[in-house]
């Protein structure tokens, strides 16, 4: 049985310690504020200055449209890569022939520099959203494939035997036996994928787009606008934290409840 499916209980995090996570965040802001006061330079604005600037950028400038565009691109790239990667990963994990034929492609895809893929897509398809999203998908998909393939290879054959003995249909076998074994690998792929997609989209927006967070940050860079760069970074961090604590974390707890539930 793969470690991810080990039925031994995993101790849930004590609820009373949840405040520590928030305290570490406040500590980070505090250290930043102290450093800004000590340095007193326009190259390190204080957190309160940056937060005030976020408000101005939201009301008077392009913060909302920039994040909407970037989030849209990241979401489209992420979902496409997850779906494609899952299907291909299952195919590679289930068929030795397909695995032998295409595993090297995945290895190449994993190791091709992101910037090379982006430049090729921009040259072939032009400086547009299609090229950008395709580049994101090509970068992210091999990572999902690798995770899912590993998950499929670690399926416990004892459960397949149970399914065959009790004559479960293919659909039942997938739903009851295979999908639950894939969940930890899907969650890992989603977590690592989200962080990767964000970074790639921003770099590609710097390289070949006239909209989005990456494009705006590159403009700030040209004017040495540290306040703007940090404001966008802070909003970016806030969105990542919300995604983790509102979407991925609760989803993970729900799907893996059988490992932690003490009731």
């Amino acid at each position: 049985m793969s470690p991810a499916l080990d039925p031994r209980p995993v101790a849930p995090r004590p609820k009373g310690e949840a405040w520590l996570g928030w305290a570490s965040f406040l500590l980070m802001i505090g250290l930043w504020g102290a450093a800004a006061l000590a340095v007193n330079s326009r190259f390190l604005p204080a957190p309160w200055t940056v937060i005030a600037h976020i408000s101005w950028l939201t009301n008077e400038a392009h913060l909302l449209p920039d994040f909407t565009v970037t989030l849209g691109r990241a979401a489209l790239g992420f979902v496409t890569a997850m779906v494609l990667g899952t299907v291909i990963g299952i195919a590679l994990g289930r068929s030795r022939l397909v695995d032998r034929l295409f595993l090297n492609w995945v290895v190449v895809g994993m190791n091709l520099p992101a910037i090379v893929i982006a430049i090729l897509c921009f040259i072939w398809l032009g400086l547009n959203d299609k090229a950008l999203i395709l580049a994101v998908v090509l970068n992210k998909t091999p990572l999902v494939i690798t995770n899912i393939r590993q998950g499929v290879l670690s399926f416990d054959p004892a459960f397949d035997e149970l399914a065959r003995a009790y004559r479960l249909s293919r659909g039942q076998t997938f739903r009851l036996i295979h999908a639950p074994q894939l969940v930890p690998y899907l969650l890992t792929a989603a977590r690592t994928g989200l962080s990767l997609v964000w970074k790639i989209v921003l770099v590609f927006e710097v390289l070949g787009s006239d909209s989005g967070v990456g494009f705006r940050v590159s403009l700030f860079f040209q004017f040495f606008d540290l306040k703007g760069i940090l404001a966008y970074t802070l909003v970016f961090v806030a969105i990542v934290m919300v995604l983790e604590h509102v979407a991925i974390g609760p989803l993970e707890r729900r799907l893996l409840k059988w490992r932690t539930d003490q009731t």
């Binding site: 499916l5 039925p7 004892a158 459960f159 149970l162 003995a165 009790y166 004559r167 009851l176 036996i177 639950p180 969940v183 059988w258 490992r259």
Partner: peptide, 16 residues
Amino acid sequence: PVPGLVFQDARLLPWL
């Protein structure tokens, strides 16, 4: 017909 099969390791699905 489907047999009633009892395994030595119980073979229960831990996620159900």
